[in-house]
Simulated assay, not measured.
Amino acid sequence: MGIQKEMSFLDHLEELRWHIIRALGAIMVAATAAFLAKGFIFDILIFGPTKADFFTYEFLCNTSKLLGFESFCDTNFDFEVQSRTMAGQFSAHIWTSITFGLIVAFPYVLYEFWKFISPGLYNKEKNSSRGFIFISSVLFFIGVLFGYYIVCPLSINFLGTYSVAEQVHNDFDLNSYIGLIRASTLASGFIFELPIIIYFLTKIGLVTPEFLRKNRKYALVIVLIFAAVITPPDIASQVIVAIPVLILYQVSILISKLVLRNQKRKEKNGE
């Protein structure tokens, strides 16, 4: 069944307003907790990829040794992160806390979004969308971890050691450094939502498996451009980022195929 009571446009806006308020409230609660945990957020998380004993560098070092060559084994960042404005550190603290709050509260934000749209769905549509919040959240968190443990270290390792001349010393602005961390993690998190997006686009008839297969070569170009934007300009880093995104695209084709198969089966059975 659909919604049981007709609602006016203003009623829908009022309902949407309260969903947004509750979602923002959850983000602010998580952001407040992050603000209070300044030592952990900055010393461990934000500046973790600048330390030689960071998990990714040790893993890549050990892996490269097994392959017969040493890489990422001499990770020594000779740069400083500075704040050049009066309110620079406080502003960075605020916005980093909000970003952390968004990441932590993401499942609840999805829940509020689902609560808003679900009354307008039929029971069979609700049943076919079970697990939406859980799967979307898992994909998002995997993407965030991928951005933090893969994209960020590769970018920092390259950009932090790159030099055009010995006379030029790297002194990065705090907001620039944190912006790199934020963009890498959030972009990866949202990119990993691709299978969910394809699922719903297929449900409403905007995307088909044939369309996705036909445009695979264009998707490959877009993925490589995306990898080039969020990673340092070296082939190895771009390939490391591009591979999981291409896998997600292939999984999306399979999901689209399964959605259409289920729809045809239900139409055949008269459901």
Rank of each mutant, 00 (worst) to 15 (best):
V109E: 05
A87I: 14
I156L: 12
I191K: 10
I191A: 15
Q167H: 09
C73I: 03
S176L: 12
G131K: 11
A187T: 15
R182H: 15
S155F: 13
N127A: 12
F90A: 10
T75W: 04
T202Y: 08
S128M: 07
Y199N: 02
F106W: 08
A105R: 00
P195T: 10
F116D: 00
L201W: 07
S184C: 15
E166Y: 03
L121V: 02
G68N: 12
I181R: 02
F190W: 08
I178Q: 05
L139E: 00
S129D: 02
I198E: 08
L201I: 09
G120I: 09
S137K: 06
S97L: 05
Q167W: 09
H169S: 13
I94P: 12
Y111A: 10
L174M: 14
C73W: 00
S137V: 04
F190S: 03
K126T: 00
L206G: 01
L194C: 06
S188R: 10
S97T: 06
I156G: 07
C152K: 06
L186R: 03
L186C: 11
F192S: 05
N157P: 06
D171A: 14
S136F: 00
I196F: 11
T85F: 12
L102S: 00
F69W: 13
Y148Q: 10
E70T: 11
F90I: 15
F90L: 15
G179N: 15
K203M: 01
F140E: 01
P107N: 06
V151P: 05
F146Q: 05
Y108T: 03
F132Y: 09
F116Q: 02
W95R: 07
R130L: 07
Y199D: 01
I178K: 05
K126F: 00
F79V: 04
F116S: 01
L206R: 13
G131F: 07
P119R: 05
I94G: 13
F77Q: 04
I204C: 13
A165M: 09
H169R: 14
S155M: 12
I103A: 04
I191H: 06
D74P: 02
F172I: 02
F100C: 11
G189P: 02
F113H: 00
Q82T: 08
S128Q: 12
S118R: 13
S71T: 11
I103F: 02
F79L: 08
V168Q: 05
I191S: 14
F113Y: 09
H169C: 00
T161S: 14
S176K: 11
V144H: 00
G147F: 09
V207D: 09
S118V: 06
K126I: 03
E80N: 11
Y199R: 02
I204A: 06
